[in-house]
Amino acid sequence: MEKRLIKKEALAGIAKRIAEDVTVYAPVRVEENVLFKVLEKGEEPLFTYQNSKNAPKNFFFPRSEVMLRYTRTPKGVEFTAEELFARDGVLMGARPCDARSFVLLDMLFDQEKYKDPYYIEKRNRTTVVSLACAKPPYRECFCTSVGGHPVDDKGADVLITDIGDVFLVEFVTPKGEKLLKYFGDQKADAASEEKKAAVAAAAEAALTWKIATHEVKEKLDRNFNSPFWDGIHKKCLACGTCTFLCPTCHCFDISDEMKYDDGRRLRNWDSCMFPLFTKETSGHNPRPTQKERWRQRVMHKFSYYPENFGAIACVGCGRCVQSCPVNIDIRKIVAEAMELA
């Protein structure tokens, strides 16, 4: 694996140089938030941030995206074109939890049967450069509880770690190595490896929230009809913030829009927190109250995903905990579920 050392203050310049060649998605300060967005000319990326308000999944799975177009003809309304948008890009500075979310999303969108070309095309053409959490940024962080680590390279093509005075840059995949030319020629030495190991250990130790999640699936499965579920949802406003900020939530709606003779089919993020999500034309709703919807959200992440793909569909970024307007805390729900019989 190629490894380089760069000065910390050089990273923003590197991002801007890459942006001259391909699209760069980077954290940028927008009013009081840090958001991942396309880095515009002259715009300053921010690499001293904690984590972004939004998860960077939208570069592969946009909040709204056109799937195909159609037009009215004398024979009816007919298909005109597939719209498969993708471009070469580099996602700079994703936190390890967010980078790991791509591995989890790949499991769903890139299955043996039924591949999702809209996701896969964008994912294949994007290189992920992760910025490790030398210090876990938030009290709400809990990546190690769900299989992640603050200095983790899963989902990353390049991993950058702050090892004190410099950044250690590791080119994890061949895709990542294509970016070598932007990172100078100072090779990393053995000492920097040791420093990285020390940083990783310290970061892990600094995580205050640790919940046991082994066998959480079995606990949840056994307690599907337990009174446990009767209280959790009571504060919930069904606003869907948790699912919109979640790096692994992938539910979507498909809808049609037509103006005069031309139209398009789009997919938009949807949320299991919304009453209409499962409501059928007959009026029947298999998840009639917020209780069933919350149970679905927890079960999907901690039971169904492990069953179908062998991994918990949560990366422990803490966004849903931070941004829930009524302070519902999925860590507490899981911790309490672990107390069940």
Binding site: H250, F252, D270, H300
Partner: peptide, 24 residues
């Protein structure tokens, strides 16, 4: 079984009964 569906290929997330998607 019938459920509300969109994608039909187990991605959009609404037609599951437990861990199984009715569509796929």
């Amino acid at each position: 079984l019938e459920m509300r569906m969109k994608c039909g290929i187990g991605k959009c997330g609404r037609c599951n009964v437990g861990s199984k998607y009715v569509c796929k």
